[in-house]
Amino acid sequence: MIYLYDGSFEGLLTAIFEAYYRKENPEKILRNKALQQTLFEEYIHIPTDEIKADKVYDSIRSKISHQALQHAYYTYLSDFEDAGTWIYRYLQLGWKMGHKVDYHLADDRVLTVHNTSRKVFGESHLLLGLVRFKKLSSDLFYAPIEPAHNIVSLIAPHFSSRLADQNWIIHDVKRNMAALYNKVEWVITELDANPNLTVDEEEQAYQGLWKQYFESIAIRSRVNPDLQKRHMPRRYWKYLTEKQML
């Protein structure tokens, strides 16, 4: 038996709620888009229900721990196909063990969730540094990103307190969504790829200066491209100003 949810975190929590109260113990919990159905499985669509989701949310916080809730949420953001199933198994153990669930580091259920949540946290931290804004002519700073995990909502608060006096957009091109900030608050909205952009006239100059800086700060006798790639994998270079040809 496989549960399907709409792809939202609330949807996933509703599915977990139903799994518990229907006593069905589904084999997997998957998001229902882009799913190849097989003949011999039974699929059950779970409609998202805010009240049920809230109950599960509160229960994780009070009966397991805040930590566990964070692990579950980060794992959900990983966008891995099996993330829902992993979270379900992890929380099942969690409700049995209470806050001690996070000590079961040799248990596969805990291990997968911890590792996944660390990956997501790691990428979100890396992106805090690697996001590159371009100043547009409309007094707006625009940054496209293509992260492996769905981390826009994790990095937006950082920029809203840091770049508090400028309008900015962080656009997840891969997922067609964006965080928008208007000097007051930030929101997540859908945004299609390739919006038409005209950059500010001084933008080229600062990009040039940054590339110059990037070039001359390296010590020639210590060049080590492998080390550079280990810290800053190739897949992030696409939007890095300093890695674009002059």
Binding site: L163, R222, V223, L227, Q228
Partner: peptide
Amino acid sequence: GVGNGHLSGICHSWSEDGR
């Protein structure tokens, strides 16, 4: 104002020498 500190520090890029 603009800017704040981040307790753990943030790396923004890595130069050709890997630093």
